[in-house]
Write a protein that binds this DNA or RNA. Sequence first.
DNA 1: CTTCCTCGTGGGAGCGCTCCCAATATAGCT
DNA 2: AGCTATATTGGGAGCGCTCCCACGAGGAAG
Lengths: 347, 347
Amino acid sequence: MEKGRGTAHTLERVAEMAGVSRSTVSRALHNDPHVKASTREKVLEVVERIGYAPNRAAQGLAYGRTGMVGIVISVDLDEVFSDPFFAVLLRELYGAARDRDLVVSVWLLGEKDDRKTVNLITRGTTLDGAIVAAGRVDDPVVASLSTANKPFVLLGRPANGESQSFVDIDNRTAERNATSHLLRLGRRRIATLAGPGFAVAAIDRKAGYVDALAQAGIRPDPDLIYEAGFSAADAVAGTRQLMQHNPDAIVAANDVMAMAALGELAAMGVRVPDDVAVVGFDDLKAASHTTPPLTTVRQSIRLLASEAVRALSDLIEDPSIPPQQVVIPTELIVRASCGAQSQQGEI
Amino acid sequence: MEKGRGTAHTLERVAEMAGVSRSTVSRALHNDPHVKASTREKVLEVVERIGYAPNRAAQGLAYGRTGMVGIVISVDLDEVFSDPFFAVLLRELYGAARDRDLVVSVWLLGEKDDRKTVNLITRGTTLDGAIVAAGRVDDPVVASLSTANKPFVLLGRPANGESQSFVDIDNRTAERNATSHLLRLGRRRIATLAGPGFAVAAIDRKAGYVDALAQAGIRPDPDLIYEAGFSAADAVAGTRQLMQHNPDAIVAANDVMAMAALGELAAMGVRVPDDVAVVGFDDLKAASHTTPPLTTVRQSIRLLASEAVRALSDLIEDPSIPPQQVVIPTELIVRASCGAQSQQGEI
DNA sequence: CTTCCTCGTGGGAGCGCTCCCAATATAGCT
DNA sequence: AGCTATATTGGGAGCGCTCCCACGAGGAAG
């Protein structure tokens, strides 16, 4: 096993070429005000000319930071790759991180038994911190992170998260509003495609749905609640089953499911919104192009991402600050699928 | 900016606790045969007990390697997240890397202007090497990697890649076989949904299609060639356009497009395979559940991934070896959509 | 009972960087 | 000019690890 040292430039070499010391080069590169302008220019010129880039490993060793944060996605890969939500999320996280000059790498933990990688993330010195999206309440990565003293921010509140940092959207209120909206439109037998019982987001959304019913004096009917995965296939199966109990509306836990339900209802000859109203959650781009256009809850994934990155970098900056907990409001986007007259809220 | 040093354990601490020297601990951890079995056990016991994990930065500094490889996906994020191919690819790459004890991180370069990240990948000391999937013939990351002296392996042959390492499937032969199969079944007006002209895979597949026609003495008809993106939407538009020229078969550049074509043909009332035969490419899981089941080209993504990882680690091990160039054969999976009687090849 | 090996082990050096303190240069005052 | 305050700069130490050389303890061989 040959040693893998390259022939990259070093600080020392730059210093020599610029006729100054190591320290001065370092200072010049870090915009230290204690460097004379002319010296800084001289140094930067050399750096530019020879294409010097600092050795990350050495920086990390000396400084104790790497400038790199991880985005850890501990969700079944099929789900990650079938729900456009994740694409948007990742894109926004990238953008937000770049705005703060952080380099991000993605760690997909869909597979079981990835202890080594988990260890690297939680204990190693590869990452300064991480933003973690976990699909399950009992995610082992989250457990592992809370014992390691490494800054991290959860996407979505933890099941029992008194003391962890997270950024979440107000799922419960959002789904309550969506359901109330349907009630206000006169729907009474409102069913839900609730998503998996092990996902906090699904649990919260279902709770919001139940809240709204309770507020209207309606007792939730177990026949009108279909709890399974978050996928289109689950939605199709769920729609078939729910339709046996004559609902007049379906509240889906996300847009992927709502769109699948729309498709299945069409195939069954059920008219939307005349026979059954449908509302989704996420306001994916595709939601405005369905037939009929989908009424759904819009969450600002951009805000979610930027808040997560902000919280994480604050935490990295000063690990002693209290856990950051941010809840982002949502907005009900009313389109045709709920049967409301108005079309306001459309882009 | 406070210094971010954690309180993680060090080699020295482990050594002290085990009553041996730093070197011995290091040796024990690296399975150096020069360590007495009893000593090794003692060391490993301590390591296990206190949860010691080596400091990657220090290892990287001292050894010149990080043990971390990157998977760089320089493809439009929408495409990455809409074609299941990438999900399978990523999963297989993860598996193959784990088999070799490499830690992988994913670098999504869908966004423009990510120079800093590119620089980090190509010049920094964060990664020992990278496996790169580039969507375009003229991808800037590929250019940047070839000037940096860092080991990397391309997924898919480069446009002009005499001297770069790559692992590819034999797209041209595969599509030739698929097209020939249709010719053998008596189809004569074979159209193609060719994928984008800037993607090498699409170019090669189209070349294979043309090869087969030429072999049968048929001159390619521009009206029967639709060149656009790789997406379902492109396929729908393409199918509509191609159908105006009365094809009796459609060869799609991937399964996502083939499936979209199937849907659009059904919507148009065109019978498959009676009126128009359809073949895809990739053999996604979904391909066997379409109506009718899709005849398609199966490529072993697993083999692709494991060969890529193997080539990369060989290259990291010894950068002086010649470029690794692997071409993986494919297999035509005959199902109902091509109109062949036989159903062999089915799983 | 020496001498030579082998096995197992210890510790120095150094990877490239950042921090810190000391040293020098420069400027500002009286 | 003489002296202090401030602006710049230099270089040592050390981050945690791997490599390499050297050293002590047993055996085998003479």
